[in-house]
Amino acid sequence: MSDLNVAIVIKLEPDFSEGNVSYNPDGTLNRAETKNTLGPHSAIAAHAAFYSKVMYDAKISIGTMGPPIADSSLQMAQRICDAEELHLYSDRIFAGADTLATAEVLKTGIEKMQGKIDIVFAGHRASDGETGQTGPQTAWKLGFTFLGNVIDYKVDLKERTVIAKRMVSLQGFNDIVEEIEAPLPVFISVDPAYKANFNTVLQRLSLEKYKKEAKIRSDNYKHYLKVFNAQQLGVDLKFVGLLGSPTIVYKVERIPKGKATRQAEILDGSNQEDLRKAVAKMKEALSAMVIK
């Protein structure tokens, strides 16, 4: 038995990098033609969990909700963090879930993992639309303390607490690093700026040892994999999938052209009329709505 049981929730996402992504003529993502990969933020979460393995010899379980092919994301995450247990929650009824309904599945899955989970790690957000709600919503359903934007953490195994550093970035304020202490269990959403610090030779050597183990395990990931459908998971069908989703996507449309295509209009800096025109354009740019 390990002193620390950690879980990671991850997501299989389209690979948006040029050369792998494909778009339909209407601008929507061509999912069939686009390769899938472990979401970059999920990968960061896996790295954060791996820190617990190296430092505290934690047992790691990974869970994901998705189609059967999402097992590849579990393998990729296992390759990063040397997990002992892989969960795939896969059922057609889960399809179309919004964040609330996804959180319900993940919460139920985490409760089925081996050992009592002390820390759950999740990515900051997904790159294909989900904007970082699933993590905190799962946390709340689990009754775990939620810590967001975590850039560093350590665990006090004796006190059963976590001390985490989180990044607070607010419009118009300098960034703040907040150090926060919380009793286990906690749910950590990992900031993209997270970087594990292994400061001694011994830690680094043990890191290498686990990395090697991770490679061996992930080459043989099916051995660690458990697949659950809705029934096996024991979720209430009213709270998952489309039925359990308060929100719907009503429509998708093109954003009216916001960005100028950078074809410079060349104006003469010594001509007052030209400068007037320049300022007018600047004014127009500033008055229009921001599309980020």
Partner: peptide
């Protein structure tokens, strides 16, 4: 073709990159 809408240009570029790859 710079006359195409910007997203069309990008879509084509991505498609070409992917095919060449």
């Amino acid at each position: 073709d710079k006359n195409l809408p910007q997203e069309e240009q990008i879509r084509n570029r991505f498609a070409i990159t992917k095919l060449i790859k």
